[in-house]
Each structure stands twice: as C-alpha cells, then as structure tokens.
C-alpha cells in the first residue's frame, strides 16, 4: 500500500461519519427548530395547566392546600349554583356572539366591498380600532354615568316624556353587561371577517354577476361561504373571551351577576385555589371542546 492509499482508507470512515452526522442533523432539523417553541409552551403553558389540573384535586383549609385526590372541588363546581353560573356564561356568549356577528358582518362587507380605495379602507379599519386606545375597564366604567338611574339616558328619556319612571334595567343588569361586551368584543369579530373578505377574488364576484346572479345571490353563494372562515375565527375569539370574562361582568353587573370567570376570580380572592382550579379545568374543557368543534369546520392553515 502506498502512503496515499493508506491515507484514503483512513479517510473513508470519517467521510461516512460526517455524512451520517449530516443526515442525522438533517433529520433532526425540524425538531431542533421547533424545540425553543416547545420549550416555551411546555414551561409556560403545559406545566401550569397541569399544575391547575393537579391542584383541582387537592384539599384545602383556610389557606393551607394539602396534596390529595378528592372530588370535593368538582362537587362544588357541579353544584346547582355554579351549574347555573355556567349556563349564564354560555347565555352571555351566545347573545354576544349573535350581536357581534350581526354588527361585524355588514361593517366588514362595507369595508371590503363598498370602499374602493385601499387607503380609505385602511383608514376606516384603523378608525374601528380607536376605542382600543383606552383600556377595557375604562370603556366599561364610562357606561355607568350614561346608563344609571339618574344617568344621561334615563334623564333624556324622562325629559322627552317617553318614560315617567327611570328604567333601572339599563345598569347593573344583563342588559348593561351584554351592551358593554358587544362594545368591547365586536372588533374581534370585524377583524377576521374583514381579513377574509378583502382576500376574496373579485373575479369570482364578476363571474357570478356575468352569469346573472343578483346582488343577494352573490352575497349568499359567493361571499358568505368564502368568508365563513373569518366568521369561525371571529367566533372563536369572541366566544372564548366572553367565556373567560370577569371584569365586565363584575363592573357592569354591579357585582351581582355571575359568570364562570368571575366565580373563579372570587374563589382565588378568597384563597380557595383548589375549587378555583376545578372551575378553571371545567371551563377550559368546555372552551377547548367548543374550539375544536369549530376548528373542524375551518382550515386555519389555509387562512394564515
């Protein structure tokens, strides 16, 4: 063997070695790329959620929590009062969803199809977001002097003689809660619907028109199906936010109305963490079920 050959032989295994490492690296690449995100999700989402699930089975007295496996907390959550609280929360979600959809769809339609200039469209959309420059809480509180017994609305109605007694149901009631929620959450419905609508190919609409479809039929058979993904995404936003809302319910309900989120907050404030955890687990399961059902109707990947 010449020294050259020797050299070659010596080199051969190391070449295969690098090749192997490279292919391994290649195979591992997606996992490596995903790992930071997995790490973050595990640390800040999966572990805390697991902790909540675990704690929901613990016992507590005053402020001491004892690791255990008891169903007591779930018994409280499934008691009549809290079942009614859940039902009430779903009722809010349903009503707010209907109203936000009814308001958001025409707004998005107007922005996407009636406004011709792109700049104008963007400007008007930004205008929709202006209320978001103040916090949720302030937008809630701002309604109080308007809706109160001696508020602007009641005094106005009294002054023009439409009513003779102030209407009490305007404030600290389901009416005020729903009004405020619709006010706060409508934009979360407008944004995704608008987003899908602007991406509808105008050729499709022209084609439909050329084939003799009426405006109504175009809306029903072209625009509505094509913007359904936006509606679904908006629905997920609005419903999951209403399900978890506690501030609006607390402020606009005068502390007297109940929602699942507010109940959890009250339990936490009274240091009843395990019961709060059980309530949170139930709420989480309900929300996840709801989202997964909706997800089966939409292909979010296609949207992004």
């Amino acid at each position: 063997m010449t020294p050259d050959q020797l050299d070659d032989h010596a080199n051969a295994p190391s070449v295969t070695h690098t090749w192997r490492t490279r292919s391994l690296l290649h195979a591992a690449r997606p996992y490596l790329l995903a790992s930071p995100f997995v790490l973050i999700l595990t640390l800040f989402l999966i572990l805390p959620v697991m902790a909540i699930v675990v704690i929901s089975f613990w016992r507590y007295s005053s402020f001491v929590m004892t690791p255990d496996f008891v169903w007591d907390n779930y018994k409280i959550v499934f008691s009549e009062t809290y079942l009614r609280t859940f039902l009430n929360t779903f009722r809010y979600a349903l009503i707010v969803w209907c109203l936000t959809l009814v308001i958001a769809f025409p707004i998005s339609y107007f922005l996407a199809f009636e406004i011709r200039s792109n700049r104008m469209r963007t400007a008007l959309f930004l205008l929709c977001t202006v209320p978001f420059l103040t916090s949720n809480l302030i937008r809630n509180i701002a309604w109080i002097p308007f809706l109160g017994r001696h508020g602007l609305l009641n005094s106005g109605l009294l002054a023009i003689g439409l009513i003779t007694e102030p209407i009490e149901i305007f404030l600290y009631s389901d009416v005020s809660i729903i009004l405020s929620m619709v006010h706060i959450y409508t934009l979360f419905m407008v944004a995704p619907i608008f987003n899908t609508m602007v991406r509808i190919d105008h050729n499709l609409i022209e084609a439909a028109r050329d084939l003799g479809a009426s405006q109504w039929r175009i809306l029903r058979e072209v625009i509505m199906p094509l913007s359904s993904t936006g509606v679904m995404i908006g629905t997920i936003f609005v419903v999951s936010m209403v399900l978890g809302d506690f501030a609006t319910v607390s402020i606009m309900g005068g502390g007297q109305r109940a929602s699942a989120g507010l109940a959890i907050r009250k339990m936490i404030a009274s240091l009843q963490y395990p019961t709060a955890a059980a309530m949170a687990v139930v709420l989480l399961i309900v929300t996840l079920l709801f989202v997964s059902v909706l997800m089966s109707f939409v292909d979010v990947k296609k949207e992004l």
Partner: peptide
Amino acid sequence: EQDYLVQKWNEFIAS
C-alpha cells in the same frame, strides 16, 4: 367554618 362561610357567601353572590 370559615371555608364553608366563604363558599356559601360566594354562592350567594353568584346566585
């Protein structure tokens, strides 16, 4: 009966 008190009170508020 503090735990029970808080539980019942929260129930009253949520009812």
